[in-house]
Write a protein that binds this DNA or RNA. Structure first.
Lengths: 228, 228
DNA sequence: AATTGAATTTGATCGACGTCAAATTCGACT
DNA sequence: AGTCGAATTTGACGTCGATCAAATTCAATT
């Protein structure tokens, strides 16, 4: 069941406006972008597009999570990226080919904004602030993706998990607690791990003062985590 | 020894003009880009910038190869990307932060073009075709980096090597031969492997009709390689 | 052709992580 | 509180690739 052109909830609107894509836009450009945009609510595990399809739109997650993944010949899935609220995906097809290069599906109930590639491409060529928004979005996205390659190649499972926890902890070194915004299996995919490996990484981190109960992660000593 | 503001060899010039960065530029924009550019020849294993330094330029490889890499706490290096002639690197810092996020060093004698971030940033805001060039470059780069994540997470060492060979083979299915443009240890880094693992992957591929002699790789049956 | 340092290959070993199966826990709903 | 299916954890095991060391090959130079 797809609920197109839904009215934006104020929460979703707030997320949308903080996106690198829209946050820098002036009145007129903003209006034009919003005009070509359509908002859709999707149920869990609903496909948004598939690898190899002709690309006609890119998306911004407003609520929930979207999984970008590939399949190998035997049908095993590997996540390439997990998109959180505020993340844009497939915007690289604005200037990088005309077919989707991976599958996209919701990881849970999600709301996404859809932008026509052709329309945005034209606007980016007319309005400088839109071009700038595209460049900002692509730059950020590229940096985090390179970060991901480095993380995969350099760190073990417990280190990746520690890293992830640290990115969501307050900066000071004392104790802290965070709550995962999604299932652990999704976190496993983000970190390039099997769910079992994530579970074992958490139990390895127990000796560093990390306690996990459901989605709540308690960190005894943030500084100690940095040294894993 | 650094040889700044070298006159461009005609070969280097040809590479430069085929870059997504400059290939789409009109007369005036092209002149302005070339004016802010400086060309440098560097010896083997010369550092271009280091992680954490303030970023003031991005680069385009004209000749040779440049390694982008990170270190972990124990000092082990992991390559994030190998830049070939025509590749641009650190251009994501145009709109994505002001510090270099990884180390860059030449993998062998190399010639690179250097572009001031600030100057290009300003030009990108003035000239639409320069903005477009930036977007194209970022898009391509992002796609290949996501490809890299997928490759790492989905494929074994022999599959990655087969993949690499296939990207440099003629499309038809018959026998073919290619010559590596660099040392095997560099290829290993590109594929996220230790040199020993690359060597073993090649010997695994022997049973698929791949013969390696020095830098020359003979492929008996391209179609068979696709099925590894 | 001989020399020599670097690159690559090979062998042996080890640790990390994937996979499969079974046990347990979680969480939504009655 | 009780039920039931899904998510997570745990155990057992296998495989892949990293690492270290030693042998071999390569390639530039004499």
């Amino acid at each position: 069941m797809m609920n197109s052109n839904l009215k934006l909830s104020s929460r979703d609107r707030a997320v949308l406006m903080k996106t690198p894509f829209l946050s820098g836009l002036s009145g007129n450009s903003l209006v034009r972008m919003l005009a070509t945009m359509s908002v859709t609510s999707l149920p869990t595990r609903k496909s948004i597009f598939r690898e190899g399809e002709d690309a006609d739109a890119f998306y911004c997650v407003l609520n929930g999570y979207v999984r970008l993944y590939r399949l190998n010949r035997e049908g095993r899935e590997a996540d390439i990226r997990i998109c959180a609220p505020g993340d844009t995906f497939a915007e690289c097809l604005l200037y990088g080919g005309n077919k989707y290069r991976y599958h996209a599906q919701t990881a849970e109930t999600a709301t996404v904004a859809r932008f026509e590639l052709q329309a945005v491409r034209e606007m980016a060529e007319q309005e400088k602030d839109i071009a700038k928004a595209v460049m900002t979005s692509l730059s950020r996205h590229l940096l985090t993706t390179m970060e991901c390659v480095a993380n995969d190649r350099l760190h073990t499972a417990p280190q990746r998990v520690a890293n992830y926890i640290l990115t969501r902890c307050p900066v000071d070194g004392g104790p802290a607690a965070i709550r995962l915004p999604f299932q652990k299996s999704l976190l496993a995919g983000m970190l390039g791990l099997a769910p079992e490996a994530l579970s074992r990484a958490f139990s390895t981190l127990r000796k560093t003062g990390v306690t996990v109960r459901g989605r709540v992660i308690q960190v005894g000593d943030v500084q100690a985590l940095r040294e894993v």
